[in-house]
């Protein structure tokens, strides 16, 4: 029979083989992990943060980036920014949607419409930025950060899935006005120490005080909320929600399923023990 000690010994051999390997792992600048309300198994989106993030997205990002998988109705759905139906209806109506079936080819937006895009042609965008800015629908899941050994092993136990927002936040905060010596940045590009290759086409998008957050009751928003750092965190959280809109309900379902499975496993253990007691 396979003894635990043998498995342990094999594990040690494997680690022994891997240890020198790991010690040599090449050094890439480590992106700092942020605190997110939706991290971990108990994590949930903070609807106020998503609302602020949406404001940043709408007023800043959406000028150049699309989000074709986001529908207006999503903004009112459970587990999202939870705007009211009326707010979303009014918001959608502010946009003009191309619809060949409508009179004149355009109509006012409905809540069932998808995010309308920037209205700029690819050619214009390439002329302006050198590339077409990527669609942001799933960008928070299409980017991540690398975890060095042994951290990535712990990721499986902490369910770390926030590499996307961590990366986006670091990227948005990663601009440097004066590139370090030796870094060659072509015309029309900007130095960003997080972006692969460091030369990014996106101009630094966020500045302190740029997006006027407002409280619903009209009270004053504290100055520390109106920083580029805060905007960046809020919009990264918002983009995570755009990419993973059912995260809250999925985790809630997960708790029910795991509770059931653990209870079922305990019961099956007693069934099995009782059955086998007769023959041992």
């Amino acid at each position: 029979m396979i003894k635990i000690s043998t498995i342990f010994a094999a594990g040690l051999i494997a680690l022994g083989l891997a240890a020198p390997v790991v010690a040599q792992e090449h050094q890439t600048p480590q992106i700092e992990r942020q605190q997110w309300s939706f991290a971990g198994i108990f994590g949930k989106y903070d609807e106020h943060q998503l609302q602020r993030g949406f404001q940043v997205f709408r007023e800043v990002c959406a000028n150049c980036h699309g989000a074709k998988l986001l529908a207006f109705r999503n903004l009112a759905e459970e587990g999202g920014p939870m705007f009211s139906e009326e707010q979303v209806k009014a918001l959608a109506a502010e946009y003009t949607i191309n619809d060949p079936e409508a009179e004149g080819g355009t109509r006012k937006g409905l809540t069932s419409d998808r995010w309308p895009g920037t209205g700029q042609s690819d050619a214009d965008q390439i002329a302006a930025f050198g590339i077409v800015p990527p669609d942001l629908s799933v960008i928070a899941k299409a980017r991540s950060i690398t975890s060095p050994f042994p951290q990535w092993i712990f990721n499986y136990f902490t369910t770390y899935s926030e590499g996307g927002p961590d990366y986006l936040h670091a990227l948005l905060m990663g601009y440097e006005e004066t590139p370090p010596e030796g870094a060659e940045i072509p015309d029309g590009k900007f130095y960003n120490h997080v972006f692969p290759g460091h030369a990014i086409g996106m101009p630094p998008p966020l500045a302190d005080g740029q997006v006027p957050y407002a409280n619903e009751d009209g009270s004053e928003v504290p100055a520390e909320m109106l920083t580029a750092e805060q905007y960046s965190k809020d919009v990264s959280a918002f983009l995570m929600w755009v990419a993973e809109p059912h995260l809250n309900s999925q985790k809630a379902a997960g708790f029910r399923v795991l509770t059931f499975l653990i209870l079922f496993a305990v019961l099956m253990w007693f069934v099995k023990q009782r059955l086998w007691r007769r023959v041992h």
């Binding site: 198994i41 899941k141 990721n155 499986y156 369910t159 770390y160 899935s161 999925q250 985790k251 379902a253 997960g254 708790f255 399923v257 795991l258 499975l261 653990i262 496993a265």
Partner: peptide
């Protein structure tokens, strides 16, 4: 149990 752990809490990990 680990199967559900990944499905519900870290589906892309």
């Amino acid at each position: 149990i680990p199967f559900a752990w990944f499905v519900f809490f870290a589906p892309d990990i």
